[in-house]
Amino acid sequence: TYYTVKSGDTLNKIAAQYGVSVANLRSWSGISGDLIFVGQKLIVKKG
């Protein structure tokens, strides 16, 4: 599943919304830090 980052989103908010960890969200999407951008597509795998 892809999630497109919206204004005001954080990795914590997105992870909580999908019931996954921030570490997994980073790993799946190839992100090393906490910086995400509006319009960026993140990969989300539901448990």
Rank of each mutant, 00 (worst) to 15 (best):
residue 20 V to P: 00
residue 1 T to H: 13
residue 33 G to L: 08
residue 21 S to D: 08
residue 44 V to A: 03
residue 3 Y to D: 02
residue 17 Q to H: 11
residue 44 V to F: 06
residue 21 S to T: 14
residue 47 G to V: 13
residue 43 I to P: 05
residue 38 V to Q: 08
residue 10 T to L: 04
residue 41 K to W: 07
residue 37 F to K: 09
residue 26 R to H: 05
residue 42 L to G: 00
residue 19 G to R: 09
residue 35 L to T: 14
residue 3 Y to I: 08
residue 24 N to G: 06
residue 28 W to P: 01
residue 8 G to Y: 05
residue 18 Y to C: 09
residue 33 G to E: 09
residue 18 Y to V: 09
residue 22 V to G: 03
residue 45 K to P: 10
residue 46 K to G: 14
residue 23 A to N: 10
residue 47 G to T: 13
residue 23 A to C: 12
residue 25 L to T: 00
residue 16 A to Q: 12
residue 7 S to D: 14
residue 23 A to F: 07
residue 46 K to T: 13
residue 32 S to D: 13
residue 38 V to E: 11
residue 33 G to T: 10
residue 26 R to W: 05
residue 43 I to L: 15
residue 14 I to R: 00
residue 43 I to F: 11
residue 16 A to D: 11
residue 22 V to M: 08
residue 9 D to H: 02
residue 19 G to A: 09
residue 46 K to P: 15
residue 19 G to E: 09
residue 26 R to T: 09
residue 12 N to E: 15
residue 8 G to Q: 05
residue 30 G to P: 04
residue 10 T to R: 03
residue 4 T to E: 10
residue 22 V to F: 03
residue 43 I to M: 12
residue 5 V to I: 06
residue 31 I to F: 09
residue 33 G to C: 09
residue 22 V to K: 07
residue 2 Y to V: 13
residue 35 L to I: 14
residue 28 W to V: 05
residue 44 V to Y: 04
residue 44 V to R: 01
residue 22 V to W: 03
residue 24 N to I: 12
residue 22 V to Q: 05
residue 18 Y to K: 04
residue 39 G to F: 05
residue 4 T to F: 12
residue 9 D to P: 00
residue 34 D to L: 07
residue 24 N to H: 10
residue 13 K to V: 09
residue 6 K to L: 09
residue 31 I to Y: 05
residue 35 L to R: 12
residue 46 K to S: 13
residue 28 W to R: 03
residue 28 W to T: 05
residue 23 A to M: 09
residue 4 T to G: 03
residue 41 K to H: 10
residue 36 I to D: 02
residue 10 T to S: 09
residue 40 Q to M: 11
residue 47 G to I: 14
residue 19 G to H: 10
residue 38 V to T: 08
residue 7 S to P: 15
residue 5 V to L: 03
residue 41 K to N: 09
residue 23 A to H: 11
residue 5 V to E: 01
residue 45 K to A: 13
residue 20 V to G: 01
residue 2 Y to W: 12
residue 23 A to S: 11
residue 44 V to E: 01
residue 31 I to G: 02
residue 11 L to F: 06
residue 6 K to P: 01
residue 38 V to S: 07
residue 20 V to K: 01
residue 22 V to T: 08
residue 7 S to T: 13
residue 29 S to R: 02
residue 45 K to E: 10
residue 23 A to W: 07
residue 34 D to A: 08
residue 31 I to D: 02
residue 45 K to L: 12
residue 45 K to N: 12
residue 40 Q to K: 03
residue 17 Q to V: 12
residue 17 Q to E: 13
residue 46 K to E: 13
residue 6 K to T: 08
residue 1 T to N: 12
residue 14 I to F: 01
residue 33 G to M: 07
residue 43 I to A: 08
residue 36 I to A: 03
residue 47 G to R: 11
residue 14 I to S: 00
residue 6 K to R: 11
residue 37 F to R: 09
residue 20 V to Q: 06
residue 7 S to Q: 14
residue 1 T to S: 12
residue 31 I to Q: 03
residue 8 G to I: 03
residue 41 K to Y: 07
residue 16 A to P: 01
residue 31 I to E: 02
residue 21 S to Y: 04
residue 5 V to N: 01
residue 20 V to Y: 03
residue 13 K to M: 12
residue 12 N to C: 15
residue 15 A to C: 06
residue 15 A to F: 02
residue 8 G to E: 06
residue 4 T to N: 06
residue 18 Y to D: 00
residue 36 I to K: 01
residue 40 Q to G: 03
residue 42 L to D: 00
residue 7 S to I: 15
residue 29 S to E: 02
residue 32 S to H: 12
residue 25 L to Q: 00
residue 19 G to L: 07
residue 3 Y to L: 04
residue 12 N to V: 15
residue 39 G to E: 03
residue 34 D to W: 10
residue 21 S to I: 05
residue 30 G to I: 05
residue 24 N to W: 08
residue 19 G to Q: 10
residue 32 S to V: 15
residue 27 S to M: 14
residue 3 Y to G: 02
residue 39 G to C: 04
residue 28 W to Y: 06
residue 25 L to S: 00
residue 41 K to R: 14
residue 43 I to G: 03
residue 32 S to K: 12
residue 43 I to N: 07
residue 33 G to I: 07
residue 6 K to G: 07
residue 44 V to Q: 01
residue 5 V to T: 03
